[in-house]
Simulated assay, not measured.
Amino acid sequence: MDRAPGPSVRLKLTLSYTGFLILPAVLVLAALAAFLLRYQELAWDNEAGVIIAPPGRFLLRSFAPAAATVMTFLLVFGLVGGWILAGRMLAPLTRIMDATRTAAPGSLSHRIRLPGRRDEFRELADAFDAMLALLEAHVAEQRRFAANASHELRTPLAISKTLLDVAGTDPHHDTGEVIDRLRAVNARAIDLTEALLLLSRADQRSFTREPVDLSLLAEEATETLLPLAEKHGVTIETRGDVTPTSGSPALLQQLTTNLVHNAIVHNLPGQGMVWVTTSAHPGSVILTVENTGEKLTPQLVSTLTEPFQRSTERIHGDQAGLGLGLAIVATITRAHDGTLTLTPRDTSGLRITVQLPARTHSQS
Rank of each mutant, 00 (worst) to 15 (best):
P211K: 11
L135V: 00
H316V: 09
G78S: 08
L32C: 14
D191V: 01
G323R: 00
K12I: 12
S302M: 10
L134E: 15
P105R: 07
D180K: 07
Q299A: 14
R61Y: 03
E220I: 02
A68D: 13
V289C: 08
R188H: 11
S362G: 03
T243F: 03
V234G: 03
V285Y: 03
Q363T: 05
S279T: 10
L199D: 05
L214I: 00
A327N: 02
Q355F: 00
S302I: 01
L197C: 08
G272R: 04
P282N: 08
E123S: 06
S364E: 10
L225T: 02
A250C: 03
P307H: 03
I84R: 15
V289I: 06
E220K: 06
T18G: 08
T100N: 15
L300Y: 00
L252W: 10
N46M: 14
Q204D: 15
T94K: 12
L196S: 00
L198G: 13
E136W: 01
L79R: 03
R144I: 03
T312Q: 15
G338A: 06
E313T: 10
P307M: 03
P92V: 04
L15E: 04
L192E: 01
P115V: 06
V50T: 14
A53V: 05
V139P: 06
T69K: 13
H232V: 00
V285D: 07
P54Y: 10
T331F: 10
E47F: 13
E41M: 12
G82W: 02
A4I: 06
A147S: 12
A34M: 12
Q254V: 03
S302E: 13
V50N: 15
G270R: 11
D119R: 02
W275M: 13
E152R: 04
L182G: 05
G78A: 13
A133L: 15
V9R: 14
V265C: 08
D203Q: 15
A187N: 06
F77H: 08
D119A: 02
E136Y: 02
L60R: 00
E210H: 11
T102K: 13
A66P: 01
L300S: 13
F58C: 12
S206K: 14
T341R: 12
G272H: 04
V274W: 04
F20N: 08
W83P: 00
I332M: 08
Q271W: 02
